[in-house]
Write a protein that binds this DNA or RNA. Sequence first.
DNA 1: TTCTATCATAGACAACCCCTATCACAATCG
DNA 2: CGATTGTGATAGGGGTTGTCTATGATAGAA
Lengths: 297, 297
Amino acid sequence: MNLRDLRYLLAVAEHEHFGRAAQACGISQPTLSVQVRKLEELLGVTLFERSSKRVAPTEVCSQLLGHAQSAVAEAEAMFSVARNLRDPLAGRFRLGIIPTLAPYLLPLIFAPLHEALPQLEIEPWEDQTVALLERLRNHELDAALLATEAEGTDLLSHTLFDEPFLAALPPEHRLASRPTVSETDLARDILVLADGHCLRDQTLAACGQSGALGGALRASSLSTLLNMVAAGYGTTLIPGLAAGAAEDAGIVLRPLSTKVGRMVRIVWRSQFSRKAAVDAVRDVIANRLRGFAAANA
Amino acid sequence: MNLRDLRYLLAVAEHEHFGRAAQACGISQPTLSVQVRKLEELLGVTLFERSSKRVAPTEVCSQLLGHAQSAVAEAEAMFSVARNLRDPLAGRFRLGIIPTLAPYLLPLIFAPLHEALPQLEIEPWEDQTVALLERLRNHELDAALLATEAEGTDLLSHTLFDEPFLAALPPEHRLASRPTVSETDLARDILVLADGHCLRDQTLAACGQSGALGGALRASSLSTLLNMVAAGYGTTLIPGLAAGAAEDAGIVLRPLSTKVGRMVRIVWRSQFSRKAAVDAVRDVIANRLRGFAAANA
DNA sequence: TTCTATCATAGACAACCCCTATCACAATCG
DNA sequence: CGATTGTGATAGGGGTTGTCTATGATAGAA
């Protein structure tokens, strides 16, 4: 059964006249006659009582008209919905963000994103890198903001900005008096995040596998880590965007003697159909963060 | 857009796999790929994100699936409804009946009709012959029970039974003592129904254009007419089926010397699609009334 | 690398839709 | 009463569309 046939049925029922119904459908009267006849055979019922005087819908027909109308309406609704959603810059956009980035980056980019892409409903999802990549591959995210290289041929990525690390020290720390700090100096009493945070691995990679790693003091969040440093438990490396929060916590920040940091990237599936949305989001974020790395270098 | 395409869409969305979806649809995988691609072009949106690993519905697609499902469901509902209504002996059956017949015939045939045709919902409509014929031609009735010949090539009719007329007399009437009465005797003080009743015309035809026709005493219903006769205003002819009601009113009934009466017919449009229902109703009524004319002759 | 699984593409064939021309029938008009 | 008009049905040709099998392209697994 073709939706076209249902339109024909509705037209004949409305006009009660094959000629005029055919005209309304933009086809010839014989075609309409044939198609309606076929529909009758398909359904196994007589839809119209024909005479040279008038064409009248049968009882069965009038009971079918409602369904036919609904079917046609639903199909038309599909076109309408598709037309409204054709713009890739519209609709829901699920964006994963790692926990060491989300609280500091989101406040910066929410307003610009909404201004530049008013139709795009950004839906942030905070989780660790591995979980974000899994959700991305599961199509539960449209893109993700990570601080690691994206692996695999099924994913693509683009650099957004360079985020330098800073040495975070308790005010009374012995290193707090120096203008810059080296990673090896920090390694003595460095604190790190819990397993799974990419920042933990990056901190360890920068400062070596030593420090206060044996204890139970593995912060579950960057916020906790900052509190621990402020309380004098040790030192750590923090990403540049967290500088404000760290200073608010009463932590002394010092640039590192070697300009180490991390690259924040946006990652998406290579087959993702709304690449335009990814590009637009990427541009807005990159623009907002332009000059950030330089200012903090 | 073809409903078939929507089914394909739903299948691919369900299986997330072109091969299995094609199998479920009973077509080859290339065909399915082509058709889905065409649907995507038609709608102007990407419906699935394809990779050799998996096929995932896009955001747009998931918003379209509901509509597609509804459209398909409505179409299926049409088949279901048609299948249920394919039986011409089921559903509403609007039956017109003339007023001089309805109150006396309906009680006799309702139960047999319901027993023989339980699926048929008989919907009686009482009106005069002309109005019934108009409603019949307007498709507002499926059939009608009349006591006149059906005119025109657009209508067909079939005789149901012969209904003899009886002379109806006040008990104290001068003719009440006779075993049979002739129409000409009745003509002296005959009463008739109001305009439009076929029984009026038939009475006048049988008894001549004389009698108490000039006055205001034209009964608007047979029931009123019976009351008038019982009250001694005059005589009349009544159809055989009304005999019981007449006797209840205290009227004396006498057979007519010439066996005059009327033929009750069922009439329907020649193009009517449910002739089987007409035939069934006809048979039930004719069976119920079998021997009625003979018993009253 | 080789094999396997997946979806996309190509070309041929059949079915289907649509058209114009015509028929059949009934109603209307002169 | 015959001609005309209006209606839906039928016939045959042509173009489009759906479907198939065979094959290609690509990515992942052995």
